[in-house]
Design a protein around this nucleic acid. Sequence first.
DNA 1: TTGTAAGCGTTATCAT
DNA 2: ATGATAACGCTTACAA
Lengths: 348, 348
Amino acid sequence: MPTIKEIAKVSNVSVATVSNVINGKGRVSEETKRTVRKVIEELNYTPNYVAKNLKMKSTRSIGVIAEDMTVFDMPDIIDGITECCEKEDYQILLVNLRLYKKYEDRYYRDNRHREEVHRVIDKLRAKQVEGIIYVSAHERLIDVIPEGMPLPVVVAYGFTNKVEIPSVVVNDLQGAEELVNYLIDCGHKNIGVIAGKKESVHTQSRLEGYQRALFAGGILYDPGLVLYGEWDRESGYKHTDVLLNAGCTAIFCMNDFMAGGTYDRLNELGIQIGSDIAVVGFDNREMASYGKPPLTTMGLPLHDIGYKASELILEALQKKGQEKAESAHYMDCRLIIRESVNKVGEPE
Amino acid sequence: MPTIKEIAKVSNVSVATVSNVINGKGRVSEETKRTVRKVIEELNYTPNYVAKNLKMKSTRSIGVIAEDMTVFDMPDIIDGITECCEKEDYQILLVNLRLYKKYEDRYYRDNRHREEVHRVIDKLRAKQVEGIIYVSAHERLIDVIPEGMPLPVVVAYGFTNKVEIPSVVVNDLQGAEELVNYLIDCGHKNIGVIAGKKESVHTQSRLEGYQRALFAGGILYDPGLVLYGEWDRESGYKHTDVLLNAGCTAIFCMNDFMAGGTYDRLNELGIQIGSDIAVVGFDNREMASYGKPPLTTMGLPLHDIGYKASELILEALQKKGQEKAESAHYMDCRLIIRESVNKVGEPE
DNA sequence: TTGTAAGCGTTATCAT
DNA sequence: ATGATAACGCTTACAA
C-alpha cells in the first residue's frame, strides 16, 4: 500500500501538495494536479482514513448496537439508519448483540447483558464513533445505557429512563385511531377488539386510539367489546366467538398474529372475511399479505424510526451540547388497505 | 476526552508505562499499575483506537456490503457474519447498498451500480478494513468486484466469475435430494414437482437433487411430472391440477410461495393437505410456518453462509497470500419437518 | 505555487 | 522498573 509520501516522491512534489490536490484545497497549478492525479491512479493509491481521522479528530462514523439482527423489525430500522447516514456521508459500525440467540427470552433481566452493552459501548468509543444508536428488538424500556455518555446516544424502538437520551418509538395511538377511523368510515359501528396483554404499553396506547376514534365517530365505548389476549394466534382464535355473539361487524386485532387466529376461527365457521365481517390487524407482518383475503393492517414506521434516530444523532453532532430536544419521538404508522374490510350500508 | 499523555501526567509516570499497564506488557510494578488504573478509572479514559490502529497498522475490522438489508435473507446472513466476527474480535463496517429501493428490480444491469460498488469499496479500503464480504440479495453471478483487490474478498450468497474471489452459496442439490428422500421415506412414489423458472440455477440444481433421490429410491423419473413455474403463488395454484390428474400423492414445490398457491388450489378442491396429499416447499419463509397445516420445507443455510464467509476472510488473513482455497462453497440446507406430509402405507 | 515541519494518540525501541 | 523518543500517515500553518 503506497502512502502519501511515496506519491509525493514519484510526483516530485511535497506531501503537502499531494494532500492539497486530493482534498481540492490550497492553490496548486493544473500541471501538477494532473501529474499527481496520474501517479495516484498508477500506484492505485487510497488515502489512509485512520491517519486522516487521527489528525482531524473526526471519523464520520456512528455505532449501531442491534439487540438482535434476526427479529423482524430490525432490517427496516437499520435500513432507515443507513439511508440517513449515507446521505450525510456517515459510516456505520455495526454490532449485533444476538440477544435472543444467546439468552433466549429473558435477557433483559440478565446482568451479563448490561455488562456486555457497556463493553460494546467502550469499544465503540475507542473506535471514536461520534454517536451511538441502540436498537431495541422490541419496544420496551432500555436502561442499560451508562450514565453521562460523552457522546450523543439515541435509542430506537425503545423507551429510556434518562432525559438526556432521546428515544424514537411507534405512535401506537395514531395508528390505532386511524385504523379504527377507517373501519368507521366503512360504516362499521360495532367494533370488537382483541387486545394484547393488558399491561403492555402497546395495548394501552392502541386502546386509547380505538377509544378516540369511537368518540370522534359518535359511538359509545363498550368495555365489554375489548378482550385481552397474549399476542399469539391462539388468542385471536379463542376470543372471536364472544365478539361474534356480541354482534360485532368488525374485529380489530392488535397484531397480525391474532388476526391470523380470528381468520382461522372465522373460516371454520364459514363466515366470509371481507364481506360478512371485517377484520384488521396491526404491524404489517409478512404473513398479513398472504392471508385469504389479504389482511388490512397498520404498517409500523420501522424505516422512519431508524431514519429519525440517525437524524437526532446528526443534529446533536451539529449543535454540540446545545439544548436537548424532547425526549420521546413518536413516528406515525401507515394504513395498509387490503381486502379484509367490507363496506357496510347505512342502516338508518 | 483525556489522552494517554494526561493519564501519564497525573499518574506521574511516562506514557510508555501507561501504555504498558493498559496492554499488560513490559514490566511494571504492582504499585504503579494500581495508581495508573485508578487514574484511568477516575478520568474515564478510553484508549483511542484510531491512533492505535495507525500505529499498529491493523484495524481488526472487515467491511460488509449488503445489497439490500430488507430482503428476507439478509438478516440471517449478517447474523452469521457477526457471530463469527465477534468470536474473533473483529468489528464490522456495514454498508447497505439499498439496491431494491433505489433501482427497483433491474439494478444489476445498471452501470451506476457497478460504479457505486467501486466507490464503496474504495471508502472501505480507505478505512483500512482487512477484508470485504459482499452479500448478494439473491443468489446470482456477482461481477461488480474490481480486478486485483489487495485484500481478501468473498461473496456470500452469490457466485463470482473470478477465481481469486471465493463464493459461498446454498447447496440446492443436497437440499432437494434430502427433501425428496424424506417424501420417499414416507412412502410416496408418485411425486410431482412445481419447479421454478427453467433457466434458474436453483431450478436446475433442485431438479437434479430430485432426480438423484428418485434414482436412489428406485423410482423412474417421469419428466411429465415436472412443471415449470415463475416462483410465485399463482404458479403453484395453476399447476396443481395437472399433477393431481397424473395421480401424484406428493407435490414438491421449489419454493414456499408456490406451495402457498398449491395450498390454495387444494383447499378449493377440498383435498386435505397432510392426509390426502403431501406438499413440501423450499426456503422456509416466514409464511411457511403459518400455513394450514404448517408447511414442511427446506431451510436455507443463511446463517451458515454468513458464518462461512467470515471464516474464509479470517483464514485468508492468517495465511496471507498463501494458496487459494476452492472457489465455491456449498452450504447444506436443513429439513424443517412440519405437518404437510402424510405417511402412505406400503402398497405391495 | 510549493515545501517544511509540527502534531494527532498511540506503541515500541532503547536507554537509564 | 521506568522514561525519552521515533514512528505510523495524514493535515495545516507558515515559510519560501
